[in-house]
């Protein structure tokens, strides 16, 4: 009996060791497949996956070391106005972000449905290619008045709720400044509103700054808005994956 137990014990040990070797082999195979010359997104992030139009897209850098950006986004000069170099932040309180922060956003807020990546360009631009995970809400939709159907649709998508009439005491406390929820305006409740990252063609593009200023005018909290100033130009300069949206 004890011999059998010992045998089973030994078999289990052998199995465990084999499983260990096997998993190490699988991990190694994955590493080998990436290769030592693989150019990652960041030091500790080879690539990321984002969902675009229901499909998982791998976002990575172009692996060709001789790759050079060509075409429209390689141009350094554009007529100014209207295509003038934009300030780092389009409005006070709005945080400007770079690619690394955008990768993090894609892996956290965007994946969890707590954030939206918005390509604020007009559809003519969007259909030529966009950043995976983006939705297209042209800046022209976000620079309208609060009762405009396009604004209402966008706000619904952003998780903004129309505010219910506050009670007598609530109103009183707010008037006295004792109860100030920064996410409440007279018309809107931004408490559950999503974090938005807006971008357009790049540092010389005014479309997303206009959209951001429009959102702020509508009362959207500045701390729930991010501005990816690099836009399509810098995204492509780093050789990052773009997608051509479906019609």
């Amino acid at each position: 009996m004890s011999k059998n137990v010992r045998l089973v014990h030994q078999a289990l040990m052998v199995f465990t060791i084999l499983a260990g070797f096997l998993s190490a082999g699988v991990a190694l195979a994955d590493e080998v497949q990436l290769g030592s010359d693989f150019i990652p997104l960041t030091k500790d992030k080879p690539y990321i996956h984002v969902i675009h139009e229901g499909r998982s897209i791998r976002v990575q850098r172009v692996q060709d070391p001789d790759y050079e950006l060509k075409g429209y986004f390689a141009k350094t000069a554009r007529k100014c106005p209207p295509f003038c170099i934009q300030s780092i932040s389009p409005a006070p309180g709005v945080q400007a972000i770079g690619e690394v922060e955008l990768f993090d956003f894609m892996e956290t807020d965007l994946r969890d449905g707590k954030g939206l990546l918005i390509d604020a360009r007009t559809p003519a631009w969007y259909k030529k290619g966009t950043i995976p995970g983006s939705i297209n809400i042209p800046f022209t939709h976000l620079t309208k008045t609060a009762d405009d159907p396009e604004v209402l649709d966008a706000f619904e998508l952003f998780g903004v709720k129309e505010r219910e009439e506050p009670g007598f005491f609530e109103k009183l406390l707010e008037e006295w400044g004792w109860s100030k929820n920064p996410y409440l305006t007279d018309k809107w409740d931004f408490t559950s509103a999503k974090t938005l990252v807006l971008y357009c063609n790049g540092p010389a593009c005014g479309q997303s700054p206009r959209a951001i200023r429009g959102l702020l005018k509508l009362g959207y909290p500045a701390d729930k808005i991010r501005y990816y100033r690099g836009g399509m130009q810098l995204w492509q300069l780093w050789g990052l994956t773009t997608v051509v949206p479906n019609e």
Binding site: I57, K128, M232
Partner: peptide
């Protein structure tokens, strides 16, 4: 498509924007 593309189909990389 770039040489090492792993994103097939309508997915394109920056190289595809130019030209």
């Amino acid at each position: 498509e770039p040489d090492s593309a792993t994103n097939p189909g309508t997915v394109s990389q920056s190289a595809e924007q130019g030209g």
